[in-house]
Design a protein around this nucleic acid. Structure first.
Length: 217
DNA sequence: TAGTCCCG
DNA sequence: CCTA
């Protein structure tokens, strides 16, 4: 339950970094589970391929996305929303694997959110140069449920801002296995990812994968 | 006419 | 620029 506290990011040992009330980074929390998560990811991506969605403004997102779970996050010209089916195939999104659910619940509980029941997992793939500018996650119904974000592969700089877009954002390096959990007073904080720097990760290759768990409905 | 998770 |  209580995670050991280590100050050495390179040790492979878990350690926690508090960002603000309601938000914490659990470094190396998912490092051991990484290989299993990625094997399962290949099955999901075969059923629901990664695609570059279009924002309501008509712009192509640099991050490639897919989903698993009973609903998935979508963006197109008409706006942002959750939907039970993949518009590319008309079929339901692949189910949320039990291993994903267990990891998300464990991370949430470790961060002080013991009753997290995610129904959506957005899967983001960052190639070098891909980024996500500052935004809020506010398409979900219940803001008492936290956000759980799992990083795999290449490291990326996470921006964690305030409740207004112009609030100064903290910068946190998220390496393979890091899990960020934010909820409560931090639930609607702006966040984003800086342009991914090229590199090679032994397990994931030349990319970064992010799994974002949410209770959408 | 507000919102906009784009790029510069 | 769109659309809601």
């Amino acid at each position: 339950m209580t995670l050991p506290l280590f100050e050495d990011a390179e040790s492979g040992q878990p350690w926690r970094e508090a960002l603000c009330p309601g938000a914490v980074v659990l470094h190396n929390f998912a490092t051991a589970a990484g290989a299993t998560l990625l094997t399962t990811l290949h099955d999901i991506a075969r059923q629901a391929p990664f695609r570059h969605m279009i924002t309501p403004g008509g712009f192509r997102m640099s991050v490639a996305m897919t989903n698993c779970g009973s609903c998935g996050w979508l963006s197109d010209r008409t706006g942002y929303r959750y939907a039970a089916t993949d518009p590319e195939s008309g079929k339901p999104w692949p189910p949320l694997p039990e291993a994903y659910l267990k990891l998300a619940r464990a991370a949430a509980a470790s961060a002080g959110f013991p009753d997290f029941e995610p129904d959506a997992c957005l899967i983001n793939r960052y190639a070098p140069g891909a980024r996500l500018s500052l935004h809020q996650d506010k398409d979900e119904r219940d803001f008492t449920q936290p956000i759980v974000s799992v990083s795999l592969g290449l490291p990326a700089v996470f921006l964690f801002g305030g409740l207004r877009r112009n609030d100064k954002a903290a910068r946190v390096l998220l390496t393979h296995g890091a899990v960020v959990v934010w909820g409560g007073p931090a639930r609607l904080r702006y966040h984003g990812i800086l342009s991914l720097k090229a590199g090679y990760h032994p397990l994931v290759g030349e990319q970064r994968i992010n799994l974002t768990f949410r209770k959408a409905i």
